[in-house]
């Protein structure tokens, strides 16, 4: 999706991608994470849209003059596409975070790099534990006068790192128990490991993958030929779509809405079965 967004710059394409992505996001967690980002997103977009035309004077269609500089429609349009593009990147990454933190990603990862994946999973499990330990260390050290709020910068920096140092010493001592617990349950034994969670690719998945790949190629090819793109500089090109534009647009639409389609199908089935 990110690739697609980078490829097309036609505002209609971009707006469609953004809207679909937002729907995908909402279907994941009802847009909870998205709402947190909304203020940043809107401020950033507005700023880009407003500032770009005043900074860049390229383009031929002059709207008005501001302090002797020309403000052009082209630069304005460019600002809009930039803002949309950035918004898309952000929304993609918000969705990405949601999916990634669900450990699904790591399962797939563990097929290729099992040891690295295990280390990441263990580290993720350790982080909350380490935070709790740091809080405890912080309480004890604060009460013996090793403060993080009083004193000059250097003292505070030193007191802060002392806490991390206590955490290090403490946790290294405990590491032996973690190791024993892993060995006691057969980690590191010879022989093949198995996995509880399985992701089967059945025939239908392959068909879908094939279709999606085909549509993707179509989009790339179309994009390379200049479809789905709008000429902005030096002069704003025409808005209208050729029929090939429509084909490219449709394939893009299907690709982007694919996750939505899958989730939606489940929901509809669920509702119908009741």
């Amino acid at each position: 999706m990110l690739t697609l967004a980078m490829y097309f710059n036609h505002p209609i394409f971009l707006v469609t991608i953004l809207l679909l992505l937002i729907f995908v996001n909402i279907s994941h967690d009802r847009g909870k994470d998205l709402r947190k980002w909304l203020p940043t997103l809107s401020i950033m977009s507005t700023l880009i849209i407003l500032i770009n035309p005043f900074l860049v004077s390229r383009g031929t269609t002059i709207l008005f003059y501001f302090r002797g500089k020309q403000v052009t429609l082209e630069a304005f349009m460019y600002g809009i596409t930039m803002a949309l593009f950035i918004a898309i990147i952000l929304v993609v990454f918000i969705s990405f975070n949601l999916i990634l933190n669900g450990n699904r990603f790591l399962y797939i990862f563990s097929k290729i790099l099992p040891r690295i994946a295990l280390m990441i999973m263990m580290a993720i499990r350790f982080v909350p534990l380490m935070k709790r330990r740091l809080n405890e260390i912080g309480d004890v050290q604060r009460l013996r006068g090793m403060s993080m709020t009083v004193g000059d910068f250097k003292t505070r920096v030193r007191n802060g790192m002392l806490r991390v140092q206590i955490l290090l010493t403490w946790s290294l001592e405990e590491a032996i128990h973690v190791t024993n617990s892993m060995k006691a349950r057969g980690y590191g034994t010879e022989g093949k490991k198995s996995s509880y969670t399985l992701y089967f690719m059945d025939k239908r998945d392959w068909v879908w993958l094939f279709i999606l790949a085909g549509l993707m190629m179509l989009c790339f090819y179309g994009g390379r030929l200049g479809y789905g793109q709008m000429i902005i500089y030096p002069e704003l090109g025409p808005w209208q779509f050729f029929w090939i534009d429509w084909i490219v647009f449709c394939s893009m639409f299907i690709i982007t809405s694919f996750p939505l389609f899958i989730e939606g199908r489940e929901k509809i089935r669920w509702k119908l079965s009741i």
């Binding site: 295990l118 263990m122 580290a123 534990l129 790192m161």
Partner: peptide, 18 residues
Amino acid sequence: IVILALLIAIAAVARVPF
């Protein structure tokens, strides 16, 4: 492996006191 995972976690949380 355990030690490395532990050091990764410590590096990741080192900012907490600051």
